[in-house]
Amino acid sequence: MSYSDTVVDHYEHPRNVGALDQADSAVGTGLVGAPACGDVMKLQIKVSAEGIIEDAKFKTFGCGSAIASSSLVTEWVKGKTLDEAAEIKNTDIARHLALPPVKIHCSVLAEDAIKAAIADYRRKTPQEPPQ
């Protein structure tokens, strides 16, 4: 299987690898996928008092496309509001990375990771900060 240059770039130079403090009330954590299925993504977002995602970090167990999908979304969510971030679609991720059909599930998982991180943040901080 050959990968697109964009996938290779994210795989070789992943953006925003790391972890944020899960105990911080400004941090939302999404952990999606399953080891038995061959991919697990952990995506964390840090939300400012103004409701803007000011930082994002990821760690991923998976193939090159899974790593690239999660690396890409950490770039995309930064600077967005939670509602804007929730609108990121797997199809946009797949298109940007030129994923072949067998790799679409990687982009789906990345979208799920964003949604899970947002849901976790909202659960921890039910009061949405004033807009």
Binding site: Y3, Y11, G38, D39, F61, C63, G64, A66
Partner: peptide, 11 residues
Amino acid sequence: AFVEGEGLMMG
């Protein structure tokens, strides 16, 4: 352990 095989092959 803890490294997916296809991702590893790419590496």
